[in-house]
Design a protein around this nucleic acid. Structure first.
Lengths: 190, 190
DNA sequence: CGTTCAGTTGACTAAGGTCAATTCCCGTGG
DNA sequence: CCACGGGAATTGACCTTAGTCAACTGAACG
């Protein structure tokens, strides 16, 4: 475990280094191969992951069998279905790596044990919910207030990493449009 | 304070009646007139409200001066900007009642005092964040997976109360379309 | 080389946006 | 009681943009 990762987690999670070290005692790292299906649908998400290095997509398959990319996650992003994590209900989401990807996982049950031992972790747990809310709201705002073209331009600015790492067909789906439309938008804005 | 309201809150918040009674000690009720601007923009939301009876819209004004209805809230819904509530940052949202509306408010600072006295309220506070996340995700899914027409049909099913109480111009904005388009959708689906 | 799949391009369709005119509804004042 | 005014809702004509289906290009890989 590098010092850099610890510091980054401290910043992201807004907790002291000491606490990060404590937290890491219930974490484990898995290295996934490229294009590995790491979560199938119809299961309860009893853990969350943090991408140390790599890229993944969280997607759904609709009734026509089309895959719809709900989220594209890169370094520092979370993977999992937070709704399933908090409600304990089954998730329809599937997760696939797009590159060789190192993920730091922790299990809900372990965090719950922590909470029983030290109330600090309940506050931490609330903070996770707050972060999940804020990122859902951000994505919601993006969809609600902007056109696909604006969303693509915003994505270019906000996350060049996604543009770089992830094939266009997934990006178009994430933006809520077809690959053809994305291709035309790209043509239009240059 | 009616018994019915207490029971409803116990269900909504998923806490025992005893706790609801305790919670109500830091709450107060305000009755707003119809079409009252109850929150201007550029302020921090240090409280949240629960609509006992009535209707309100949470909206933004874009750079063209157009009002965009972000949320339409009726009986049992929350009013406020949860993002501003948790981050302490200023909100661009404005809130206006659409009917004479009774709202149950509580202040963040009061809840924080509660938390210091009894850890139960930290769990409660996390639960609020979870609920906020789930409703943001629900709205996000609605926007991401469905067309405006489907969204209107879903709204008809999910909340006839909104259709009844709230003028179409706000509903169209909430759905992300113009009043003209909503009018055409209504024509189309009958 | 040939296969495969991502990405692009073209022709056409569908749906929502825009602008303007009209109708409907409702409250108010003569 | 009726006429009028004003805003909401509808309708029409036209525009813009994304979807669809199909063909083509290009790069990666065996």
């Amino acid at each position: 475990m590098t010092q850099m990762l610890i510091e980054k987690l401290a910043t992201t999670l807004q907790i002291p280094i000491k606490r990060v070290e404590e937290f890491l005692s219930i974490c484990y790292i898995v290295t996934h191969e490229k294009n590995e299906l790491i979560e199938a649908k119809n299961r309860v998400f009893d853990k969350l992951g943090y991408i140390i290095n790599g890229a993944a997509r969280i997607y759904y398959v609709n009734d026509k069998g089309e895959e719809i990319s709900y989220l594209l996650q890169v370094n520092g992003d979370v993977i999992g279905d937070f709704a399933s994590y908090i409600t304990g209900e089954k998730s329809q989401a599937k997760i696939e790596t797009l590159l060789k990807t190192e993920v730091l996982y922790f299990e809900k049950s372990k965090l719950e044990k922590f909470i029983q031992q030290d109330i600090f972790w309940l506050g931490f747990s609330k903070h996770l919910s707050d972060l999940a809310f804020l990122s859902a709201k951000q994505r919601l705002d993006e969809l609600f207030f902007h056109t696909p073209e604006q969303r693509y331009i915003n994505l270019l600015k906000r996350s060049p990493e996604i543009i770089q790492k992830i094939p266009q067909k997934y990006i178009s789906s994430y933006l809520g449009i077809t690959p053809q439309s994305l291709s035309r938008i790209r043509k239009r804005i240059f």
